[in-house]
Amino acid sequence: MSDTSIQTTGYEGEAQFGDYFALLKPRVMTLVVFTALVGLLAAPVPVHPFVGFCAILFIAVGGGASGALNMWWDADIDAVMTRTLRRPIPSGKVTGDEALAIGLVLSVFAVVFLGLATNWVAAGLLAFTIFFYVVVYTMWLKRWTPQNIVIGGAAGAFPPMIGWAAATGGISPESILMFCLTFMWTPPHFWALALFMRKDYDHAGVPMLTVTHGRRSTRNHILVYTILLAALTIVTAFTGVGGPVYLAVALVLNALFLKGAYDIWRRDENASEADNFKVERAFFKLSLLYLFAHFGAILIEAGLTRFGLGGWGLVGIGA
């Protein structure tokens, strides 16, 4: 549990706007906004631009609220991890109570106004996403099981479903597929990070797979999940959100991603730490491009569909 009295790292000073904004995890919010936007625009129901803007804004605020609540609860472990010790709470810029208040207020604001702007199905999904990320993942799974990122990854996979629901008022196989794409992508993405940041998780006592089962097991898991993810993305090409453009992107990106996973898998445990770090970090960076490119391809297919060119009708296969 977060302890607002934890020792800070000595950067105390008056909080600036940027410190409060950092509570919202803006880099994570970028992914939330983009995938939600794709879900909104890929939906078969047109949305008024102003309604669409409001929907994405409130989804982003909800994602930021989750980040603030996560930082409030995890302030103790953030203070001992190199990657996170400069965050607003451990650095002394923002107090835990402030983060808690900001997170709660923004959560209620985002859910209520998303419901008013679009529909209550989308608002309900956003509320559940916040609950899942903060309570199920942050408060429970993260410190309890090495499967934390597998199950907890669902929280980051909901935004395209929320965007789709904001447009259609419901859930469909297509929105579930977009959820599954992010859900299956999350484990290899974060396990690669855990490989080259293992000491951080060791010091913090977080039971990541690298800590509980070792590097070899983590490498095996990355390869298996990458193979399953590749199969899922190829199948998605032949659904309502796919098409030739998406298939081309999927084939290229999966070839690169599978090679990256294989390079990690075949690493010699006796190799230098610097060599391993280079391979794992490269895979982690590629994973970011991988997800953005797949959702970008879905967005392109949706745009082509608006002009009657999307899907496999573009090449005369099906209708």
Rank of each mutant, 00 (worst) to 15 (best):
A255G: 13
A42N: 09
G152C: 11
D202G: 00
S91L: 03
F132E: 02
A127Y: 05
Y225G: 00
S66P: 03
E14H: 09
G205C: 02
W312P: 06
S5N: 13
R216W: 12
F128G: 04
A250S: 03
L100I: 03
I77R: 03
L177K: 00
G240W: 09
F17A: 10
V105F: 15
A194W: 09
P88S: 06
G18K: 03
F238H: 12
G10A: 08
V252P: 01
A154P: 01
P46S: 15
T218H: 03
T182L: 15
P207L: 02
F196C: 00
A293G: 06
F34K: 06
T30K: 07
K278M: 05
N270P: 00
P187I: 14
T186S: 06
D78V: 10
F109D: 04
G310C: 10
V45N: 14
D263A: 14
A117F: 13
W312S: 07
M208Y: 12
A293V: 12
I59E: 12
F132Y: 15
G96P: 06
L314W: 13
T129L: 04
A271G: 02
V108N: 11
I56N: 00
V241C: 08
A79W: 09
D76I: 02
L258W: 11
L41E: 14
F58H: 04
Y246E: 04
S272L: 12
I59D: 11
E174K: 05
I149L: 06
G124R: 06
L247I: 07
I176F: 15
T118F: 09
L37Q: 07
E280G: 04
P49I: 13
I162R: 10
L286M: 07
V245W: 14
F190N: 07
G303S: 05
L309N: 05
A79Y: 03
L40S: 11
A302L: 12
E14R: 14
T233S: 11
T233F: 10
V315W: 14
I176P: 02
S2Q: 07
H221W: 15
I89Q: 02
M178K: 12
W164F: 12
G296A: 13
R215M: 06
M71V: 10
L253K: 12
G163N: 05
A319Y: 08
N70S: 07
F238I: 08
T305R: 15
V32M: 09
L40K: 01
G13Q: 14
G64I: 11
I317T: 01
D275F: 09
I317N: 01
S287T: 05
H203P: 01
G169W: 13
G156H: 05
I56H: 11
L304F: 15
F132N: 01
V224F: 15
T239N: 13
A271K: 02
G243W: 14
Y11N: 05
